[in-house]
């Protein structure tokens, strides 16, 4: 399968890339890892006239952890870099749990977290992680930079809020204030398959009290589901079995799955319920042991 014909540019500076996108007037597309875009172009679901390859832009491969625990993920940080970043996993365990479950190990060599957010696949995994962590995307266009909270960034299935001449330069995961715990669970039919259902949980604990919680779901809606009700069921409380059950109920309630070849809607809700329970139970037993 060949993509239809297109022009290709590999600029060396961000300004040049933005200029090319601007002149492309909506017919140009950014090419990052290519692990979603190239398959789509081969199927001719995407037919851009111009590809602006950002792989040669300096600095975008930076994965930084700041003193306050903020994590900055440049647009060229690959899934594989995140999988190997032990320092990041120590700060945000949910990242370490999710990274090895994205696609397969060879796709992870090339694909990027920021590209995954831009692609906005309702079954993508990183958007759930970034939502649970209240992350944001930094975009740069001709008019300068802006920060876009993840909840506003994705506007629908395969749609994001970027203007045609904006490049997402990084994703930022804000630093935690208290002890962090969390996890990511994904049900897939085989390695490399998209999620039948997936759950990202990120919480902060002050002693045994939950001070912040984020629970986000993938594969169970037309976009990533931010299960705010489930998170609210935890904040201010200890991780008792009642609190965990309330959060799991609220998450299953928030899920809006459709039945498909991966399973019925009821089954997917059940999986979400099980995943939330499992992650939170594990967190509560580990923190009890630590105490």
């Amino acid at each position: 399968m060949y993509p239809s014909r297109f022009a290709y540019e590999a600029p060396r500076t961000l300004d040049e890339a933005i200029g090319l996108l601007h002149d492309g007037a909506g017919e140009a597309k950014v090419l990052a890892g290519g692990q979603s875009l190239v398959p789509l172009m081969k199927l001719r679901f995407a037919n851009p006239e111009l590809l602006v390859d950002i792989n040669n832009l300096p600095g975008l491969d930076r994965l930084e952890t700041l003193a306050d625990g903020t994590i900055r993920v440049g647009a060229l940080v690959r899934h594989r870099d995140l999988e190997r970043a032990g320092d990041v996993h120590r700060i945000q365990p949910v990242v370490g749990a999710a990274a090895p479950l994205i696609a397969d190990p060879i796709v992870r060599t090339r694909g990027t977290l920021v590209g995954s957010l831009c692609h906005a696949d309702p079954q993508g995994d990183w958007a759930a992680v970034v939502t649970a962590l209240r992350g944001y995307v930094v975009a740069q266009g001709p008019g300068g930079r802006r920060e876009i909270p993840i909840g506003d960034f994705v506007t629908g299935p395969f749609q994001n809020v970027l203007a045609h001449d904006e490049v997402a330069v990084e994703a930022v995961l804000p630093g935690p204030r208290h002890t962090v715990a969390g996890g990511f669970l994904k049900l897939e039919r085989r390695v490399g398959d998209f999620a039948t259902a997936g759950t990202a949980v990120a919480i902060e604990l002050d002693g045994d009290r939950v001070t912040r919680a984020g629970i986000a779901l993938t594969g169970v809606g037309s976009r990533t589901v931010d299960a705010t009700g489930a998170a609210e069921a935890l904040v201010g409380r200890a991780l008792t079995s009642e609190a965990i059950a309330a959060a799991a109920d609220a998450a299953a309630e928030a899920a809006q799955p459709t039945a498909d070849h991966r399973g019925s809607a009821a089954y997917k809700k059940h999986v979400i319920h099980t995943f939330v329970t499992r992650i939170l139970t594990r967190v509560s037993t580990t923190s009890e042991q630590a105490a």
């Binding site: 290709y8 692990q35 792989n55 796709v107 060599t109």
Partner: peptide, 29 residues
């Protein structure tokens, strides 16, 4: 398979394995 699933087209790209059906030749410049 030509759909980035089967992995028979794997080559090393800067020492890391990639599926060469999902990389444009121009990107390897």
């Amino acid at each position: 398979c030509d759909t980035s699933n089967c992995g028979t087209c794997v080559v090393l790209y800067d020492d890391e394995p990639v599926k060469s059906c999902t990389v444009l030749a121009v990107m390897a410049g």
